[in-house]
Design a protein around this nucleic acid. Sequence first.
RNA 1: GGCGAGGUAGCUCAGUUGGUUAGAGCACAGGACUCAUAAGCCUGGGGUCGGCGGUUCGAAUCCGCCCCUCGCUACCA
Length: 513
Amino acid sequence: MNNKNFYISTPIYYPSGNPHMGHAYSSIIADIFARFKRLEGYEVLFLTGTDEHGLKIQREAEKNNKDPKKFCDELSEKFKDLTKILNLSNDDFIRTTEKRHYKSVEKIWNRLVKSGDIYLDKYSGWYSISDEAYYDEDEIEEINGKKISKSSGSIVDWVEEESYFFKLSAWSNKLLDLYNKNKDFILPVSRRNEVIKFVEKGLKDLSVSRTSFTWGIPVPNNNKHIIYVWLDALTNYLSALNFSDDEKKYNKFWPADVHIIGKDILRFHAIYWPAFLLAANLPLPKKVFGHGWILSDDKKMSKSIGNILDPIEIVNIYGVDQLRYYLVKEVSLGNDGSISMQNLKNCINNDLANNYGNLCQRVFSFIKKNCSNKIPKDYKLENIDTKLLDKLKKNLPNLIKLINNQNLNEFIKSVVQYSFEANKYFNDSEPWKEKKENPQRMRTILFVACEQIKNISILLNPIIPISTNKVLDTLNVNPKKRLIKEINNLKCFEHDKELKDSDILFNKIENDN
RNA sequence: GGCGAGGUAGCUCAGUUGGUUAGAGCACAGGACUCAUAAGCCUGGGGUCGGCGGUUCGAAUCCGCCCCUCGCUACCA
């Protein structure tokens, strides 16, 4: 019951090319949840990494005249760089080419063989080399004596390949049970329905080995085969716990609390992964959250349209907190979301610079000029003050719930609301008038403003950690007190210390058009 | 084709079990103030809630039909 551990993962990324906005988005939202759980006092394991096997990587490596491992070393490094650029708080970075991963994949494989869920058979079907895809009988047609794919028009050949199979079909009912009993297992709900409908149609056994290429983990005791990349890749979530030989870490963090993924890999996480685990008699992750895609000006990003938004470039120009904030504010988590440079600028200027940033600035500079640069301690709270503070305090359980239900958008909306209110409070209280008429009142207003800035900063900390830490540094709030439970604890300030110097938090962005 | 989701202000969306003049943010216009990044605060315009029909004292909210958009439809990940 007192389990204060939390395990969250991003997908492991396929490094066949450079990191892009989709990777950044998955990572950022996972990071936000990880950071929030830490603020709640949890011990968090936040995992990300790279998925490095498979035909595509092998091909890309060959194209670049590189050994696949070396090829992956270079690209994986770029994904590691991205974790720094995005200021991710990941505790580990797993690569599927690591020894610890090989060992845990082999362990899973052996368990599946032992349980009788893996068997050797033949895979056969109409295969198009150019499409790299198999087609069903009804997806092909015969023209001039040649079989071709209806959709792509490419020639297909009948091929037969020896393959190991996983008895996926045997698990349909167990999976449906799982979806039924755990309404939260697949989120958002729309995705859950998709998966259920899909499974209800019945599942075929899954081919889980390949002999047509070599870049992968060999099947134990049969080196002719390598293990199917998804069985390989999904196991990373266990490898990072040293599944094969460290029970302590495994027991502490498994099952995972949530796998954050993109909707494109939902099936693998919501069907294959729990099926593998069920068959291996291992506990299942508690939640799989499939987010939508990031579109640029309502279109999928592509080189030919020229609408690619590069996360690294945006971070370089506008800053990492700015990108993080914008992505989670603008995109409704779970749905596809459209982003644009114009909206990014508006968002930075309105929410960050004018609202939160300027709130801090106006309060801090007022204190500097009128209170010897120290947060007043002789405050006497009046109705308007407690009303402001209590509103946030009372809503706190609800805010926590929003995060734990992955309702990031509502969460941000609420927090921004507090920032509005704090600005209004400052306006309405008119400390510049009280300065002459009632200095005591002025000091109270400034204390309350600082307290609310502290509270808002803690709440925004998982989203914009660098900026909020600057604010909390300015306020001399001990890093150990930057926790959810310290919200509305009026004793976090060291009133004898002067405020640290603070620069402009968020520069406004000039519109050049 | 089959299954599913959705169409609410210029844009992004909220609208709980049907109930008084349909809301928020952004964008736009005006006003008073000055502590602050010419920021903040106040006020305002703007919507036949996809269309038609039905149930009801009353529907964005329930039912039917139609139009439009999007997602899933198995081994590339």
